[in-house]
């Protein structure tokens, strides 16, 4: 990406660059390939080190996929994950967008640095610290093992994050556009709804994707407060780990189902990703 640097580089630097990047790519891709490979093998083939090339060394089969997907737990878990993650994302965006806009645009008695500090302190606290109170709260509200219970917890954990990053997105909007809209007679609501939201859409989508992935991947609260009826994929994976153990093919299918959605989503976003993951501390 740095033309000047590359052009001045000796062949040794160039060779090192490619070797390092290729080795790193192999390292990164191997578990994915291994999982895909095992997911289309029969159980006996997974123990055969010579079974490398499909159709040549072994006959690929979809039996593990069919077995997992026809299991009466996988589909409900997938559904739970989808509902809980999208529900939380929606709620965070719904509650967070106006708050973020307000913090970005208006004067408040709180300094934004103090807000950041408070936010970071929230981040520092291991979630396990509040496990007992949330568990007891859900028991009292009769929300144990429900989607709503999980959504409530996840929204709490992600709302501050969403606000901090979306506030940053809204700050990017140029003052001139805002002033021009005002001159044209737009009120504050119209500026928010017709100008700020459309202009920040990609930033908001990235925020949404990050929140979605956090919820999707969360395992501690998921398995603690929703062990059965509302079990998400994380809980399902942990459960099948203890029941299916070392069945490589089943493990592979379960892993692939669990990791694919957020990974695929993240492929479509590059802008704002570094910023989103550092909660606005890094521009990029």
């Amino acid at each position: 990406m740095r033309r000047a640097l590359w052009l001045a580089a000796s062949w040794r630097v160039r060779a090192t660059t490619y070797i390092v990047l290729i080795v790193a790519s192999i390292w990164v891709l191997t578990p994915f390939v291994w999982a895909i490979q095992n997911s289309i093998k029969s159980l006996t083939d997974t123990f055969n080190p010579a079974a490398i090339v499909p159709f040549v060394n072994y006959t690929p089969t979809l039996s593990s996929w069919i077995k997992v997907l026809s299991d009466n737990q996988a589909i409900p878990a997938l559904l739970s994950s989808l509902i809980v993650s999208s529900g939380t994302t929606l709620l965070v965006i719904l509650l967070g967008t106006p708050a973020a806009y307000s913090l970005a645009g208006f004067e408040f008695p709180i300094r934004s640095r103090d807000l950041n500090l408070w936010f970071y302190s929230q981040r520092v606290m291991p979630p396990v610290v509040v496990l007992a109170p949330f568990f007891i709260l859900l028991v009292q509200l009769k929300l144990v093992d429900t989607w709503i219970g999980l959504i409530l917890i996840y929204t709490t954990f992600n709302l501050t994050f969403g606000i901090v990053i979306m506030r940053d997105v809204f700050r990017e909007i140029s003052r001139d556009i805002n002033d021009a809209a005002k001159v044209d007679g737009a009120n504050a609501w119209q500026i928010f709804w017709l100008i700020a939201i459309p202009l920040s859409l990609d930033g908001l989508i990235v925020t949404g994707i990050i929140v979605f992935s956090f919820c999707w991947n969360e395992a501690l609260f998921a398995s603690a407060v929703a062990p059965q009826h509302a079990a998400t994929l994380a809980t399902f994976v942990l459960a099948s780990r203890s029941t299916q153990g070392v069945n490589f093919n089943i493990a592979a299918v379960n892993t692939l189902i669990a990791i694919m959605p957020p990974v695929l989503m993240s492929l479509f976003v590059h802008r704002y990703l570094a910023r989103g993951l550092t909660f606005g501390a890094v521009k990029g």
Binding site: W34, N217, V237, S240, R241, I259, V263
Partner: peptide, 11 residues
């Protein structure tokens, strides 16, 4: 980056 940790542990 966005892979589920328990799934990675399982794999």
């Amino acid at each position: 980056l966005f892979t589920m940790e328990v799934a990675i542990g399982y794999l």
